Computed example of a mutant assay.
Amino acid sequence: MADAGGKRVRRTVEASRQAILEAAERCLIDEGPNGVKVQRIARDLGLTDAAIHYHFGNREGLMEALLRFSGRRFVEEVQGAMSVGDAAGIDLRQAASRLSELYERRGTARLAMWLMLAGWSPKGAGMLQPLAEWLHAGRAQRARAAGLAAPAFEDSQKMIALLGAVTFAQALSGDAHLRSAGLQGVAQNEFMAWVADQLET
């Protein structure tokens, strides 16, 4: 790779893959899946197209790797927050906000849909499991404090699955589905807060 002065910088294979994925993620956030172009990433990093193909095979391989990269980063962030935060402090609104960050602001929903339309099939490897565990820990702690029985973990998993589905759809369609129901002027975050409150109830 080349540094800012144009000099070649030798990197390990893993460091090169990391740099390529980070550059691809920036393109995804800025322009969506169509903005993730091998030629652009190679130019930005001072690489050849062939170097990127060496690491990922082709553009589709890069896109799949980028989706896994985003998923791993999300899991690491949730686990990091769990390790320093108060379990009782997370609620469904906060969970919805984290999911919106993943699916909408980072462009992960559009990337996953792009891959699925190209024939890729998701494996369901448990990316949202840590978020369900964090939510459940908070729900169980609040139940104990109120003298109630702990809720079933499966309920927390289903809540996260439902929130994930809604935030995924919102990331793809914006507020179109709200307007289709005649909801004019309702912000997406307002709608998600309402969904979270209904689940809490």
Rank of each mutant, 00 (worst) to 15 (best):
G5F: 14
G6A: 07
V9T: 13
S16I: 01
I20S: 05
L21Y: 10
E22D: 14
A23L: 09
E31L: 06
E31I: 00
N34G: 10
V38Y: 03
V38D: 02
I41K: 13
R43E: 12
G46P: 06
L47N: 06
I52Y: 07
H53Q: 08
Y54R: 15
Y54E: 11
G57W: 04
G57E: 04
L62Q: 10
M63I: 13
E64T: 15
R68A: 11
R73Q: 11
R73T: 10
A81N: 09
A81R: 12
M82H: 05
S83A: 15
G85P: 06
G85W: 00
D86W: 05
S100D: 13
Y103F: 14
A112K: 09
M116I: 11
G119N: 08
P122N: 11
A125Q: 10
G126V: 06
L128C: 03
P130G: 06
E133H: 07
H136I: 11
R139L: 15
R139F: 02
R144F: 00
A149K: 05
A150I: 12
P151N: 07
S156D: 02
Q157D: 03
A161P: 01
G164F: 11
A165R: 08
F168S: 08
H177V: 10
G182F: 05
N189D: 09
A193F: 01
W194V: 12
D197S: 10
D197I: 02
Q198I: 14
